[in-house]
């Protein structure tokens, strides 16, 4: 009995000794900041930063090689926390999200054939370019949803990816994996997109799709800011000029241009303050006649008609017009929109 106890105790002691020695001999000096920073990072290992994973990125930040701005998945609080740890500056970058430039819903794009095979867009693309009649269409088998490290993409009933703006971090994995290259990253603030990638002429597009861009140019003509371009029969938004007024959305005959302001919570309306001297410049400039007011009197904006383009704010010489963000996600018919945030123009 005693010998058994002594033997086991002895073995235990030897094992402990071995571990103690090993932990000394094989000790790797690690900068403690790496572990702290790795904890703060989202931990999704999406690779948007260009490094192998969040652990590798943490090491890169500490070594000075990596810039915190490279991580698109981190929130502001976390980014500033890392900046504090490292004692460096962090400049907030424009928040982006993924947009699918195809809208083949409601029987939009017909199938040219019945595809049976691997349920992956990349694999289906190898078989005759995918089953959609439009060569630039989204194949809809859900590869983007499967590869998204943040679970931000779900597939709708008719095979179209739906991006959840609250989860999308613009890491870019879906952009890289889509075999048709129909997903792009766009700034959240510019919430209007042309959901089509087809460069075919209008007649060819109309033959296969009811919601594709036919290159009519109506959007280019209506845009007060020259923010719409038309190249190769495909309209595109110039995000540096777009003021997110939504006029293009209303004139597009095929509904190819969509407005995501409410989804992304970036809808703005104009509000005229007390500094207004009734010069009527704003009322005359408003493209939708949303400003009412007699000359030399306080002007008011009708929130139901205002499209948030900001032309009035540009015109006002007294700075009396401010653009505020509103949350229109409640029933539009009920009263004025709730003001969500203030802000200058």
């Amino acid at each position: 009995m005693l010998s058994a106890i002594l033997t086991l105790a002895g073995l235990g002691f030897l094992a402990a000794l071995g571990l103690a020695v090993a932990s000394r001999v094989f000790y790797v000096k690690m900068d403690p900041r790496v572990a702290t920073i790795a904890d703060i990072l989202p931990g999704a290992n999406c690779g948007a930063c260009g490094y192998g994973g969040c652990g590798a990125f943490a090491q890169a930040i500490v070594s000075g090689e990596g810039k915190i701005e490279a991580c698109s998945a981190i929130d502001e609080e976390g980014a500033h926390a890392i900046a504090d740890i490292m004692g460096i500056m962090y400049t907030e970058s424009e928040k982006e999200w993924a947009v699918v430039l195809c809208r083949h819903t409601d029987g939009g794009v017909a199938n040219t054939f019945d595809y049976v095979g691997i349920s992956d867009c990349r694999a289906a693309n190898l078989v005759g370019g995918g089953p959609k009649a439009c060569p630039s269409a989204c194949i809809g088998l859900g590869t983007c949803a499967a590869v998204c490290p943040f679970g931000a993409i779900t597939m709708s009933a008719d095979g179209l990816p739906i991006i959840d703006p609250n989860r999308c971090t613009a890491c870019g994995v879906c952009v890289a994996e889509c075999p048709k290259n129909v997903i792009v990253l766009a700034p959240v603030s510019s919430a209007v997109s042309v959901h089509c990638s087809s460069e075919d002429k209008g007649a060819a597009v109309k033959k296969v799709c009811s919601t594709g861009c036919i290159g009519c140019g109506a959007c280019v003509r209506v845009c007060p800011f020259e923010a719409m371009t038309m190249e190769n029969n495909l309209a595109a938004v110039n995000y540096s000029k777009c003021r997110v007024c939504g006029l293009c959305v209303s004139v597009c005959p095929t509904n190819a241009i969509r407005d995501h302001r409410d989804e992304l919570k970036v809808r703005k309306i104009a509000v005229i303050g007390d500094d207004c001297n009734g010069c009527t410049l704003c009322a005359r400039a408003c493209p939708v006649d949303a400003i009412a007011g007699n000359p030399k009197e306080q002007h008011t904006v009708d929130p139901a008609r205002c499209i948030g383009c900001g032309i009035c704010a540009d015109q006002c010489k007294r700075g009396a017009v401010s653009m505020i963000t509103v949350d229109n996600t409640e029933d539009e018919a009920s009263g004025p929109a709730t003001v969500v945030g203030g802000g200058g123009r």
Partner: peptide, 8 residues
């Protein structure tokens, strides 16, 4: 009109 396409 619509045929079946699979890989061989």
């Amino acid at each position: 009109d619509v045929y079946l396409i699979t890989s061989g």
